[in-house]
Write a protein that binds this DNA or RNA. Structure first.
Lengths: 230, 230
DNA sequence: GGTGTTCTGTACTGGTTGGTTAAATCGATA
DNA sequence: TATCGATTTAACCAACCAGTACAGAACACC
């Protein structure tokens, strides 16, 4: 449709008058804030439009309806946090150090992306109804499992790790600890106080999450390997 | 106000014509379903009213406004799942068995109360704004911490458990694993498949959550105590 | 510079929804 | 049984909000 001069030109010389792609991104960015903050039914299209440099009409022109916009925002959220594991250079580390790094990275990564966490929470409230129409999301987290699987295999080959650890299950456990830390901080800190959510508390939690995973995975006779990596 | 004959009578002979307390409970029950299913802004007062044996006006009569009703539902949700730990008879078990039972109970308890989980998720989406006005909730989970603390102390006294384990932090970890299992089952199973959420998968997860906690807490020279309790 | 297409602003609408008004009914009590 | 307060009903309303009609501007291509 537009793989002619326009596509090439758009990259360097931004046309001041028209900028469809920019408008789309602008809408998406604002919509992500609004949806992640207020949920699907709580978000207001008018509010999104007001905070955009364009108008409400554009939202409907580009995204069809509210759910269409929400779906794109959800995909965007999943897309933005994908990967990362691949740049950790886990293969270059010994299995214990690699697993620890992966845990701490996951914990930090979740912590650094509250908007993503909130989008996932919201989507779960909706029973994952909207992600079902999107194929883009499903394959996205596969690299995480594979990275984990690689580390596990190496650790088992060296008789450091116990046999029979399921990579998917371990990923579930690491995710649970990292996700809950962000998703439930409001209620948890209200009930039990905010000590765990200060920067010191979070550092401790992060360390202990990694330690918990390592103690779960390591063979008892190699537990002494914990804490020797940094 | 009504600690006369009416209060006594209400317990057995339900007056068919008027039953304020029954109406309140009826509203609360229906509202809990509606709110936990659709969230605060997604829930519809008219829908709640329609599913009640009373009218919309009554909701406003008893609960003031939508947020007032939501707040009471939230308190109700927290109240209904409180305790439980106290009836586990943890003191009658050796520390390892007690901790395992506590973990498995927590996991099961969360699993059996999805409406509660969803209410907590929703409240977290709202940054815990509504529970802040309710003092009733704050003290509710204290028994859980104390039960855990008791078990930890006994285990440490017997040199079974490592020193320096923080009961609150351990409670956080157990909660994280148990909560995430329910809260994120929709998105997780969509991305990774539903194997972990079959009844067999859940049984394995439950067992491994307890095992993970035990491996974290036990001194390495007592790791052999795992799995000997049932 | 004509022409079809893509994009954008303004004004509007119709259904939804939280909340209300005002009056009626019931139960107890004096 | 007259009265009073607590409870209930039915009709109503105003604000909100997702979505649209329509006119027109900018652009691509010939």
């Amino acid at each position: 449709m537009k793989r002619t001069a326009a596509a090439v030109k758009a990259k360097d010389a931004k046309p001041a008058t028209r900028d469809p792609e920019g408008v789309r991104r602008d809408i998406l960015t604002v919509a992500m804030e609004e949806f992640s903050q207020n949920g699907l039914s709580g978000a207001r299209i008018d509010e999104i439009a007001a905070r955009t440099r364009t108008s409400k009409r554009m939202i409907y022109y580009y995204f069809g309806d509210k759910e269409g916009l929400y779906r794109r925002v959800l995909e965007e959220a999943y897309g933005k946090v994908r990967g990362g594991e691949t740049e950790l250079d886990l293969e270059g580390l010994d299995p214990v150090a690699a697993l620890e790094r992966l845990c701490r990275f996951t914990f930090e990564h979740h912590r650094a992306n509250p908007a993503f966490i909130r989008m996932v929470m919201i989507e779960n409230i909706h029973h994952g109804r909207h992600m079902q129409t999107s194929d883009a999301i499903r394959g996205l987290n596969q690299p995480a499992i594979e990275a984990l699987q690689g580390v596990l295999r190496r650790g088992q080959a060296q008789d450091l790790f116990r046999k029979g650890i399921d990579p998917l299950e371990l990923h579930w456990q690491i995710s649970a600890l990292s996700f809950f830390n962000v998703s439930n901080s409001a209620t948890f800190s209200h009930i039990f106080g905010g000590d765990l959510f200060t920067s010191e508390g979070q550092e401790i939690l992060s360390r202990h999450v990694a330690e918990m995973v390592l103690r779960y995975v390591l063979r008892p006779d190699h537990l002494s390997a914990i804490g020797k990596t940094d």
